[in-house]
């Protein structure tokens, strides 16, 4: 303790070493997010006859550290739209606050919130594109699920660069490699959407989450799942991946620490 109040409560340099002052930069150019910090992994989504289902796990990683294990990455917007967030969690919380303010403003208006999932997706992709054009990106890859203006099931993706695309089944991050092939096999292009039931879609998502938990090192067996139908949103945020079988693990050979 000394007589300089500014120094009280701070780690002492003689004990902890000098603080890296680059984090307290006061001069030089203005800096923006150039990499994400706390991140969420895959988001997966499937359209089915009369609706859309979306799922994420509940993990927020700090690099390779499983930092927060109870983070809800599916956010509800209005009556029947859901956004699933992958990427930076703080940017997710910022966007969520942005969407909440829009929802509140819409609800105070005379017509109520009439924004559907398609409108929401257009808005989000423009926010992403504007921020990337300012070199100050929101480091996320999101899936938006709900209904379009014609009342048809809607599922679309938007990412930090403002790139958008839509398909009957989508996945972000690791899911793009692991979940999409499973979904494409279960629901091939030739199979019309009318032949995919809600139960089949949910089962498929659970199967994908399980495969992701097996193979994605930044994933968790606790997950959230949202099912959007004409009856509204059924959001479950504390689910557990069931009937795991790690029997395959001992047959995995050929890389890693194994020598034989």
């Amino acid at each position: 303790m000394n007589h300089f109040p500014e120094a009280w409560g701070r780690p002492r340099d003689d004990v902890y070493g000098a603080y890296n002052p680059s984090y307290l930069q006061t001069s030089g150019p203005k800096t923006h997010t150039s990499s994400p910090a706390v991140t969420g992994t895959s988001v997966i989504g499937v359209k089915f006859n009369g609706g859309v289902a979306l799922a994420t796990d509940n993990l927020a990683s700090y690099g390779s550290l499983a930092r927060f294990t109870d983070v809800k990455r599916l956010r509800v917007f209005g009556e029947n739209a859901i956004v699933g967030f992958g990427g930076d969690v703080s940017d997710m919380q910022y966007i969520d606050r942005l969407l909440e303010s829009i929802d509140i403003r819409e609800n105070y208006s005379s017509h109520g919130n009439m924004l559907n999932a398609k409108n929401l997706h257009t808005y989000l992709s423009k926010v992403f594109y504007k921020r990337r054009s300012e070199f100050n990106p929101l480091w996320n890859h999101v899936l938006v699920a709900g209904y379009d203006g014609d009342g048809q099931p809607f599922l679309s993706s938007a990412d930090l660069l403002g790139t958008t695309f839509s398909a009957p089944h989508l996945a972000t991050g690791f899911g793009a490699h692991l979940a999409v092939p499973i979904l494409r096999r279960l629901f091939p292009d030739e199979k019309p959407l009318e032949e995919v039931s809600k139960e089949q879609a949910i089962d498929a998502l659970k199967q994908c989450l399980k495969v992701l938990f097996y193979r994605d090192a930044r994933s968790l067996d606790k997950y959230s799942i949202a099912v959007i139908t004409k009856d509204g949103i059924d959001l479950k945020e504390n689910e557990q991946i069931e009937s795991q079988s790690w029997a395959f693990a001992e047959r995995v050979k050929g890389y890693g620490a194994q020598t034989k």
Binding site: E6, Y19, P21, Q25, S27, G28, R132, S133, F135, L161
Partner: peptide
Amino acid sequence: TVGYSFSQAAAAPVKQHGFYPYT
């Protein structure tokens, strides 16, 4: 005179950001 780390901010090296806005 005291030399606490928070007074040295001006000496910080400039950080480059690595965001590529195209794909």
